[in-house]
Design a binder for these strands. Structure first.
Length: 219
DNA sequence: CTCCCGATAT
DNA sequence: ATATCAGGAG
């Protein structure tokens, strides 16, 4: 496990690698962001953006998602995967935003979580990106990177990973750090072939010690 | 824990 | 062929 100094060193180096890390889900208002993040579960941002490019031309407001049959919305997002659950969630969430929140996306995370298809991770992304509230959304990348480096323990739940990061990182840096960890995981410390040979953190990375130059686990 | 699921990289 | 992708719900 890394101590605070080592964690700060890691985050500084990652910041050098990805100084401009930010949300890559294309959106132009909070409602579009909610939809985009809800669609992004177990799917790449690139694929979500490909679909929302046309989706957001057809569906502007929550009412628009309720104006079509479920099957039509399913087809419109089919290439995303998990499309039956996601289509149902988006219609229900649209209905709730109209009926319970006056047509506006709630700015409170505990309210966002009440929306179907919106869990803690998605809610953290929305408050952070759309409303500027400090938050650390722990997705697959943040979890993997934190565990490989030794910022947290392998057995930790995503909630425990989030708590650890919130404790180790100053609150004003939560959102930037969160995006930098995502970029580091997405483009460098990748799940299948991490680029350990060109990693400035190799010497203190416990997972890196177990891997060869190609980032493959040694036998 | 399982299920949902198509697209893409390896 | 298999692993992975800005997870969430039952």
């Amino acid at each position: 496990m890394l101590n605070l100094k080592q964690i700060e060193y890691c985050l500084e180096k990652i910041g050098d690698m990805f100084p401009h890390a930010e949300c890559e889900l294309v959106h132009s208002n909070p409602f579009e962001l909610v939809v985009a993040v809800a669609l992004s579960a177990q799917c790449t941002d690139a694929l979500v953006n490909r679909v929302t490019k046309t989706l957001f031309e057809k569906y502007k407001r929550p009412e628009d998602y309720l104006a079509v049959p479920l099957e039509e919305l399913q087809q419109d997002i089919r290439s995303i995967g998990l499309y039956r659950n996601k289509a149902k969630n988006i219609q229900k969430l649209s209905k709730m935003i109209i009926e319970d929140y006056g047509g506006e996306v709630p700015k409170d995370r505990d309210e966002l979580v009440k929306l179907p298809g919106v869990g803690r991770k998605t809610a953290n992304v929305v408050v952070s990106v759309a409303f500027g509230v400090p938050a650390i959304a722990v997705d697959t990348h943040v979890e993997r990177v934190s565990k490989r480096l030794g910022i947290c323990r392998w057995k930790d739940s995503v909630l425990e990973v989030e708590k650890t990061l919130m404790k180790k990182v100053p609150k004003e840096d939560w959102s930037v750090t969160h995006h930098r960890l995502i970029f580091f995981g997405r483009y460098h410390c990748k799940a299948q072939s991490p680029r350990c040979a060109e990693c400035p953190l190799l010497s203190l990375c416990r997972e890196g010690q177990k891997r060869d130059k190609k980032g493959l686990v040694k036998r």
